[in-house]
């Protein structure tokens, strides 16, 4: 199905002799927001790492726009924004320097937008402050500024709202919805109750575990 962005078939992953998920299959269409649910240790982060291509410890097939993802790795990386458990923010660099390096890594990003993105996440006035003197939430915000810079259609976000205040979460949810309305897709894990009124689909990993099948 080429109209699907990402298709996952028969995914199986085992960790330390424990089956995390078995025969997991779903597909992500443009404009869809998918929330991965599950208790702690149910394999949410593992799934995110597999989907993004960081981890190869799985069996099954992942297709990107109808092609096996291994064969179109370059196109996939160009179309992917991954927000991991660690924010990827260097403590001794300033928010601006952090994002400038990120812009060099993703050629689609225009470095001139960085100041605007920092303003959007509420870090105006902190552009030149080293990240180690910012709070934990502000550090996450530096990394979340990448969402405002990105032009990638697929966003994979692992716990993006950790340490973010209520107002910030609402702004990010609005951003996710806008991204979906523009035809992008989001796969995210979060323990927050999403306030998005829109095309949110939930996948519960607890039901996919080997023990319950």
């Amino acid at each position: 199905m080429p109209d699907q962005l990402l298709t996952v078939q028969n995914l199986f992953c085992e960790r330390d002799d424990r089956v995390l998920f078995n025969r997991l299959g779903f597909s992500v269409a443009p404009g869809e927001i998918i929330q991965i649910e599950g208790q702690n240790g149910s394999g949410k982060t593992t799934l995110m790492r597999i989907l993004s291509g960081l981890s190869r410890h799985y069996e099954g097939d992942i297709f990107w726009r109808g092609e096996p993802v291994e064969q179109v790795r370059d196109d996939f990386c160009r179309d992917l924004l991954y927000f991991g458990h660690q924010a990827g923010v260097k403590a001794v660099l300033t928010p601006q320097e952090n994002l400038r390096w990120y812009a060099a890594l993703s050629p689609a990003i225009n470095a001139a937008d960085i100041d605007h993105a920092l303003e959007q996440v509420g870090l105006r006035g902190f552009e030149d402050v080293p990240c180690h003197s910012l709070s934990a939430g502000q550090n996450r915000r530096v990394s979340l500024a990448r969402l405002y810079l990105s032009k990638a259609p697929l966003w994979i976000l692992d716990e993006p709202f950790t340490a973010i205040d209520k107002k910030g979460v609402a702004a990010k949810e609005a951003l996710l919805l806008r991204h979906a309305q523009r035809g992008g897709s989001v796969i995210l894990t979060t323990h927050h109750e999403l306030g998005i009124r829109g095309p949110v689909r939930k996948i519960n990993l607890d039901q996919c575990a080997g023990t319950s099948t």
Partner: peptide, 22 residues
């Protein structure tokens, strides 16, 4: 080590740019 610990390395590996150059 520090790139690994703060997650910069993940971003590096998922970048569409050639890794060997970085």
């Amino acid at each position: 080590r520090s790139d690994y610990e703060d997650g910069s390395l993940e971003q590096l590996l998922l970048s569409p740019q050639p890794l060997f150059l970085v």
